[in-house]
Amino acid sequence: MYTHIENQVKETQLKDMFYQSLFIHNPNASYLLDMNGNFVSFNEEVEVITGYSKSELLSMDFWPLFNDEDKPILLEKFTTTLAGQKNKFKTTLVQKTGTEIIISVTCVPVIIDGIVEGIVGIAEDITEEEQTKIRNEKELHLAQKLQLNVLPKPISNTSIEIDGVYIPCDELSGDMYYWQKLINERYAVVIFDVMGHGVSSSLIGMTICSMFRELITMKEDPVEIFTYLNEHIYDLFQSSNQPTTYVTGVLVIIDCQNNSIEYVNAGHVSPVLFSKSLSEPLPSLNLPLGLSNRATYEKKEMSYNKHSRLVLYTDGLVDSLECDPDKYIAELATTMQDHEHLSNEHFIKYLKNKKDKIPEIDKVDDICLVSITIKK
């Protein structure tokens, strides 16, 4: 009997030592408050994080450590914790020197025999982490503005109208489009979809778009342009020992004088050409860019009637509508027919509004959409 009691005492002592060690030796600031918010006990990290001495802390409550504007939310957290609720939140702590730091606070009620007797909490200095987060957000915002500035302005004249919609699922997108007027009433329009999304994909997309802008001034053959881009993308990842990526894309050259279109589709979802109640997809004939440095590219030529409309898009639009590409092509062709009376500007607004009705939870990929109305 004596041994059993002795073991229980030792077990209780071990538990007390365990909790005391967890409190005293915690790498973050650990503290115990009474029902009035006065400091009862704390570890050395509380002195470090606040700048106050032990004697100073034991003679004060926690309110002087915070700005007036933060006190309403702190009062709410303090009150709900005393009511038995656990809380975790971020706030700004004012050190004795006046320096402000950002802390993450976790506080729980101290319950003894079913009655709340105080609050035990842990505070972690996350100032550096939060400042880094703010810097990253600013840099992402700047990168997003730069990416938007790369996109071309709409074209509208007596021959053609071209406009686009760019919708990243993150701050940045790997989907890009670009168009440019060439000589003799010819227009080049390209759309790219880089594997993945986010920062790395956006950098690749902007690089490709920048290269295309230079290439289209020197070469007008879509096969030559895509062959060059393919070799460059392949060499880029082979030389840097990075995992292979690939890029799908469509390059369309529209000749408004001869009513003709030539295009190269490199593994991309099929654009749709609608003309005089007939729709025709522009299917892929080639491998995506960047998969093989031996890939060859084939172009296709086709004619069109006056007052035609051509729509290019990325697979994020298909994925967001939860349908397979063939079904979406048929649906898009029907939409183009039903709304052929709309101007190019209003047609692309209609498609964008239709996309905007998709719940946010379903928007898991970047989306680019380009509409081209050919008037003659």
Rank of each mutant, 00 (worst) to 15 (best):
F237M: 11
M17Q: 14
F23G: 10
E322T: 02
H339L: 12
E47H: 08
D326W: 02
G84A: 00
Q257G: 09
I225Q: 00
R309T: 00
E185N: 14
L14H: 13
E161D: 14
D221P: 00
V110T: 00
S279V: 00
L32Y: 13
G316H: 00
L140V: 01
M302L: 14
D163V: 06
E185C: 04
Y52I: 02
D362N: 15
I329T: 09
I233K: 11
L146M: 13
E322Y: 03
V110F: 07
T97M: 02
D365S: 13
V223I: 11
I102G: 01
E124H: 12
T79D: 10
N136Y: 08
N36Q: 14
T106K: 09
T248I: 09
K15G: 08
K88G: 06
P243R: 15
K300P: 08
M176Q: 10
K133Q: 11
S240D: 12
N265S: 14
V272H: 09
L151Q: 12
A29L: 06
I122Y: 11
G249W: 07
T244G: 15
C209G: 04
R186E: 05
G118E: 00
S104Q: 04
P72Y: 06
K357D: 08
V105N: 02
P288D: 04
E124C: 10
E100M: 02
L203T: 01
P109V: 00
Y350D: 15
L82D: 04
E231F: 05
D365M: 15
I162T: 09
I253L: 13
K375F: 03
N26A: 13
E214G: 03
V223C: 07
M336R: 13
T79E: 11
D16S: 13
P154E: 03
H339Q: 14
T248M: 14
S239I: 07
S343P: 05
H197I: 01
N28E: 09
P271D: 10
G37N: 05
I155F: 07
D125Q: 13
F39E: 03
F237V: 03
N286E: 05
T296K: 12
R294C: 11
P325F: 01
C169I: 03
V364D: 13
I134M: 09
L75D: 12
P283H: 11
Y350V: 05
P154G: 05
F78A: 05
C368S: 14
